[in-house]
Design a protein around this nucleic acid. Structure first.
Lengths: 63, 63
DNA sequence: TTATTATGTAAAGTTTGTTTTACAAATATA
DNA sequence: TATATTTGTAAAACAAACTTTACATAATAA
């Protein structure tokens, strides 16, 4: 699953660390998701979606 | 996290078993999600969303 | 250049999602 | 009623998400 987190994070001028704090996960988790190492849980996807004011479907693309 | 799977499943006249087959998980997984025991993974949420032709946000409600 | 900040990554451990097997209870059908 | 189907649930095992610690590299600022 692909995602636009890196781009959105740049638009919002947030470091991985800052984004991690805002959505309550570790920096490594954000890094792993950006690098496609694993997918976020649905609750985390919701938090990211809310923060960036975009739908989950617009941020995450299934395959 | 709440969800409308039970209602959608009824509209589509699918048993838990049939829905499970269509989205490639076990019947117990569907049951657990319907009963709110845990949240689906994001990939599973996408499959369910696609099957019912509704957005993830319309099927799953955060908190 | 040196120091600081940001990113990539890895290993060990915990938590949560999922499977399998199994059985009991509820609901529908004969 | 009796039988079959559907749903609820539970335990053990496994997989995936996530944390913590730690270190190395890349980029930025002093």
């Amino acid at each position: 699953m692909k995602n636009k987190i890196k781009v959105l994070r740049a638009e919002y001028e947030l470091t991985q660390e800052q984004l991690a704090e805002k959505v309550d996960v570790s920096r490594q988790t954000i890094n792993a998701i950006e690098k496609g190492k694993f997918d976020p849980s649905l609750p985390l996807a919701f938090k990211i979606s809310k923060l960036f004011k975009m739908s989950i479907e617009d941020i995450f693309q299934n395959e």
